[in-house]
Amino acid sequence: MMTDDVTIPVDVAPVEIAQERRTPSPTQRKVVFDIRDLAVTYGPTTAISGVDLEIYGNLITAFIGPSGCGKSTFIRSLNRMNDLVPGAKVDGRVLYHGQDIYGDGVDPVEVRRRIGMVFQRANPFPKSIYDNVAWGPRVLGMKKALDERVEKALTRAALWDEVKDRLKKSALSLSGGQQQRLCIARAIAIEPEVLLLDEPASALDPIATAAIEELMHDLKDQYTIVIVTHNMQQAARVADMTAFFSLQVEEGKRTGILVEYENTDKLFTNPADKRTEDYVTGRFG
């Protein structure tokens, strides 16, 4: 593992949080997701197609791109959340540790247990703070030492100190940023291997956003983190690897495609593709 000097692209604001970027060499990479020719269609519209990439363990991988380019669709296809959308169809393969999560006999419920997700809008259950975190473990039968588990999850989500005195209060009484960290705590309480974050900070103020970014950084030792963001600076701040999605218009049909996938520094400073360059320098989108 090596640490590069962080080169900040021109249009990116200086980052205050400590940042340690990882760019493991090809031999050190641990492939978690191996995605081959992935396409997702909703009825007649194709949301994304032809996506090929590998996502590596214990890194933060960011997906950026203009709105409507299929970033959310992509991330939701990694834990089969698209199954819930009527008419959604997934083609291609999503290999998770070598196993196709869309393969025969694979249980989407088991997939989602192992691959946690945090959504754009904080969605705590209308329950107490404690019950929000404890609900998942209870349902999954992890009932031993539940209090410790809840405390550990809240601590890891950097929320414990703020809520330890009011665990029985409604989760809806928390601020937006706290709610989102609670959702992260809820996701890690069931010990997933991967955390998918779908624009987790888009509804938060800058301070709450910084807290979430710092948290992601702390979590990557233990989890593989995939984040979708519409905010390029955020990707530049937190991600080790970044993928750029764009829209391809053909015969009036708009399809999301993967344009470029690189080390974050390279993608932002020296992109190989013209479209990426236009996007990261602000000429497009």
Partner: peptide, 21 residues
């Protein structure tokens, strides 16, 4: 790409099979 991946199961087993039921 590392050659050895830990064998994991994404199939319903044990507790999950009961919950599925």
């Amino acid at each position: 790409m590392s050659a050895v991946t830990p064998p994991i199961s994404l199939r319903a087993s044990g507790g999950l099979r009961r919950r599925r039921l």
